[in-house]
Amino acid sequence: MDATDKKLITLIQSDFPITDRPYAAIGRQLGISEQEVINRIEEIMKSGEIRRLGASFDSRRLGYTSTLCALHVPPEKLEKAVAAINSYHNVTHNYERNHYYNVWFTLIAPSRERIGEILMEIEKSAGVGPVLDLPATRLFKIQVDLPVI
């Protein structure tokens, strides 16, 4: 990645133009052609620094509810538990972390009832639990872009 790639990522992280020809608009800001913007973005996506280009929705405004879940899983049950958790499209992030609660995942669903059901299914099918269900009670900061360094 060169300096132009970094500027490009910074620009399209937070300020992607919502216009008929967005890459032409970006090109004008960076002093490169529309085609070069497209080529560069395709390259960056191929090498993996950009995961996706598009909208990130506020789940609450779409009527959904979300939570953070934590779970203690002994090593011999880890594979089965991860497969059970990951099988839900409602699970968007799932990480192993260095704590007694070693599996942490986020869950987005249409209702609190559905969240309860999913957590019960996970506990049952993987023989683990109880899952800690920690829905946010206050939001101080959500998903802010980090500077490209």
Binding site: I9, A55, S56, F57, D58, I142, Q143
Partner: peptide
């Protein structure tokens, strides 16, 4: 839409 653009 909270943000529209590149997810890195």
């Amino acid at each position: 839409i909270r943000r529209f653009g590149a997810m890195v």
